[in-house]
């Protein structure tokens, strides 16, 4: 099963954005292989292209050239229905701004992906309660997003991402709108889900707290991979990273 070892592979990803006359290369040839079940952080300063990479891996935006393979399927070959199926079943998304639907309660938000997956209402609610319990929000089922704190909203978003048992969870700056302590709790929760549920977590971030729990860290600079660090290197280098960030 060598082919199955990697859950995501990208080959020569290029994405350009037009800014008036000039065009900026947000991604400039990114080759990245992501192993099944790993916790990977994509680090880099703002404007480095990490969100663009996140969008390309998640099938939220098309790269100008290069390809993304999810479970060995080339995403560019998928039509709208197949892409929707992939987003629904294979990938769970977590955003900096939570992006919960304001008109729905926590449980309804979490149930929505199961509706798209074709589950019956009863099965969806059962699954919704199960994942909300998993993220520690079993007592907030019927609250609306506005009645929840930032940390609780992000937990709902994590539960929603897990609703259809995806093999990948993509998180874009999941701690960006949270205070230090809440951010740590969210990171710990993601790590726990990664270990217990075996879900691959790919997180674009510039939060250094994320480095401590990652199996690998990919450093992006100017649309290219600057370096990839393994867990063993990270533990040695954490001090150095913190020094670097102080400058």
């Amino acid at each position: 099963m060598a082919a199955n070892e990697y859950v995501v592979r990208t080959k020569g990803l290029v994405k350009e954005f037009r800014m008036g006359e000039e065009s900026v290369r947000a991604l400039n040839g990114v080759d990245l292989d992501i192993k099944r079940g790993e916790y990977l952080s994509i680090m880099g300063p703002s404007g480095s292209g990490k969100s663009t990479l996140f969008n390309a891996i998640g099938g939220l935006d098309k790269p100008d050239s290069g390809s993304v393979f999810i479970n060995d399927v080339d995403m560019a070959q998928l039509d709208a229905r197949e892409l929707a199926y992939l987003r629904c079943h294979t990938i769970g998304y977590i955003f900096q701004t939570f992006n919960l639907l304001p008109s729905m309660t926590a449980l309804e938000n979490v149930t929505l992906p199961t509706v798209f997956a074709g589950l019956t209402t009863d099965d969806g609610i059962e699954r919704g309660i199960e994942v909300l319990n998993l993220v520690g929000l079993g007592h907030r089922l019927h609250h609306r997003p506005t009645q929840l704190s930032g940390g609780q909203q992000q937990r709902v978003a994590i539960a929603r991402a897990l609703a259809n048992n995806p093999s990948i969870v993509l998180a874009d700056e999941p701690t960006g709108n949270l205070d230090l302590k809440t951010g740590e709790e969210i990171i710990a929760l993601l790590r726990e889900l990664n270990k217990k549920q075996g879900v691959t977590i790919i997180s674009a971030t510039h939060d250094y707290k994320m480095v401590d729990v990652s199996d690998r860290v990919v450093w992006i600079r100017d649309g290219k991979i600057a370096k990839i660090e393994e867990r063993a290197d990270i533990e040695l280098a954490v001090g150095a990273i913190k020094d670097e960030s102080a400058h």
Binding site: V73, D74, R81, E82, Y85, L86, C88, S103, E108, G118
Partner: peptide, 28 residues
């Protein structure tokens, strides 16, 4: 063989859309 045959997303019944729309009108 490596590409496989990806599955397709199902079309939801009209009643589901109605349910979500009504909720949305009410809260807004």
């Amino acid at each position: 063989a490596s590409v496989g045959t990806p599955e397709q997303q199902i079309t939801l019944p009209f009643s589901k859309a109605w349910e979500i729309s009504m909720k949305s009108i009410k809260i807004r």
